[in-house]
């Protein structure tokens, strides 16, 4: 393939060369090492590794909890975004800035903090324990951690779309006799839908691979509260490279698929900020 550029500015060779070299060294070659290592296994071995009962249980927890976390964030995220864009209240700027805390706070800190909060003796755990709702060291704890880390995605994806909504559209709906509820549910929310799905997918994708915030609160019991990324680490520590590699390949394929799906959604919505 001839790599010809169109454009009169200088520097194509230099910048493109550096880009490709750096991308290959940091991302492509190491990822290729993972794929290459997995080819030392036969197909039957690979299938056995990635479908063993313990691994299947970890998929169920990882994807189930990620989905629930993304759903919680899609409901509260749209309310937070709506309130931040449409209403005025004291401390609004502060709240707006705080939404990004889960991006900025290291996941290990989030993990030990949420564990302390939701442990049976913690500030929140103490209130839930008498109600018969244990959170720490249960799948519910995993949901709490994944909700925390996914919180900014829906809000930050919806905010710019809400801000750029044409007010004429709402006025038109009103002049045609629509009430507020009708305008919101039939005019505004459908317009937000693509960005809403994009934001929720981003939260889901982030949650599926998450490790730091989950391992402390999960309790990490095999078959019960063990997430898939943790299983990779466990296998590595047992020098089970075949097992770690196989699960790693599955996780990689899933993240790549999610990335393509999200890119496709973004190209349809014009939402391009991913953080």
């Amino acid at each position: 393939m001839k790599f010809k550029s169109t454009g009169i500015l200088p520097g194509f060779g230099l910048t493109m060369g550096f880009t490709l070299a750096y991308l290959s060294l940091i991302v492509l070659i190491p990822l290729a090492a993972l794929i290459l290592k997995s080819t030392t296994l036969t197909w039957a071995q690979f299938v056995q590794e990635v479908t063993s009962p313990r691994v299947m249980a970890s998929y169920k927890l990882t994807f189930g909890a990620s989905l629930v976390g993304a759903l919680i964030n899609s409901v509260f995220g749209v309310i937070v975004a709506w309130v931040l864009v449409r209403y005025e209240f004291p401390g609004k700027k502060l709240v707006d800035a705080m939404v990004d805390l889960p991006f900025a706070l290291p996941t290990a800190v989030a993990g030990i903090t949420l564990t302390a909060l939701y442990a049976p003796t913690g500030w929140i755990g103490r209130l839930l324990e008498p109600l018969g709702i244990p959170v720490a060291y249960t799948p519910l704890g995993v949901v709490v951690a994944l909700t925390f880390i996914g919180l900014p995605f829906v809000v930050r994806t919806l905010q710019p779309v809400l801000e750029s909504l044409d007010p004429e559209m709402e006025k038109a709906a009103v002049s045609l006799g629509a009430g507020r509820w009708y305008t919101v549910t039939r005019v505004i929310l459908p317009t937000l839908a693509p960005a809403w799905i994009t934001g929720s997918s981003l939260a889901f994708a982030r949650a599926v691979g998450e490790y730091g915030s989950v391992v402390f609160i999960a309790g990490n019991m095999p078959m019960k509260t063990e997430i898939t990324p943790l299983l990779i680490i466990t296998k590595l520590e047992q020098y089970d490279y075949a097992g770690a590699t196989s699960i790693g390949v599955v996780m990689l394929v899933i993240s790549f698929t999610l990335l393509l799906a999200i890119n496709w959604l973004q190209s349809r919505t014009g939402v391009h900020r991913i953080h």
Binding site: P30, L31, A33, L34, T107, A205, R206, V208, G209, E210, Y211, G212, P229, L230, I232, I233, L236, A244, T245, G248, M251, L252, S255, F256, L258, L259, I262, I274, H275
Partner: peptide, 11 residues
Amino acid sequence: FTVSPVVSGLI
């Protein structure tokens, strides 16, 4: 951005 941090270390 979407690769799990654990997989990032594993590679």
